[in-house]
Design a binder for these strands. Structure first.
Length: 187
DNA sequence: CACAGGATATACT
DNA sequence: GTATATCCTGTGA
């Protein structure tokens, strides 16, 4: 499976299917273990009310980045998915750090591996992603996406940090991963 | 564990 | 103009 093939699916298929892939930026990154799907017609999605200056990338080509400022402090990065031209995306929430740990420690200012990429704001800081990367093509350098070699077990849970459509189980995580931003809800 | 401070772009009235 | 946002961190129990 190539990245281009993965992107042909729905936003939910992309979200579930991208778990276990390795994302590198300039050779720094790790395995994707946690994402959230923001679908067409989803009230929690930035694209819900149509295209604006901020979310323009979400209506652009699939496989590019949508990067935006969150709470005035953090950057959050999404993989743009196409859903009938309406704008959809997969929010990158956590990586299992595998490449360039030292570089990520420098950028994050913390030594604890568990805190390098566990959370959308931490992940972008560790990879050095900012507004400059909004709209960037993930299939070209400095970006690299490698498919997993062995099968990945994916679980669905509810999304985090949103105020609408809170019950939708559109957060996808690797089962039993210890690198998530939050533990799976009990039960 | 709970809580609140931080700091800014954007959307909406 | 005002409110709110796909959050992180430090502090005090």
């Amino acid at each position: 499976m190539t990245f281009a093939e993965l992107l042909r699916g729905s936003v939910h298929e992309v979200a579930a299917g991208i778990i276990g892939w390795t994302l590198l930026v300039d050779g720094v990154g790790g395995r994707i273990v946690e994402v959230e799907a923001y679908a067409e017609g989803d009230p929690a999605s930035h694209a819900f009310r149509g295209a604006t200056a901020r979310n323009a990338s979400m209506f652009g080509p699939p496989g590019h980045l949508y990067v935006y400022r969150s709470y005035g402090i953090h950057w959050c990065a999404n993989v743009v998915c196409e859903q009938q031209g309406r704008g959809a995306g997969v929010l990158l929430r956590a990586l299992e750090p595998t490449h360039g740990l030292e570089r990520m420690r420098e950028r994050r200012g913390v030594a604890d591996e568990r805190l390098l990429c566990a959370g959308p704001g931490r992940l972008t800081q560790a990879l050095g992603l900012t507004r400059r990367d909004d709209g960037a093509d993930l299939s070209r350098p400095p970006f690299e996406l490698r498919a997993p070699i062995s099968p990945v077990v994916v679980e669905r849970t509810t999304r985090i940090g949103i105020s609408r459509a809170v019950e939708q189980p559109w957060r996808y995580v690797e089962a039993r991963s210890s690198w998530l931003s939050r533990r799976r809800r009990a039960g």
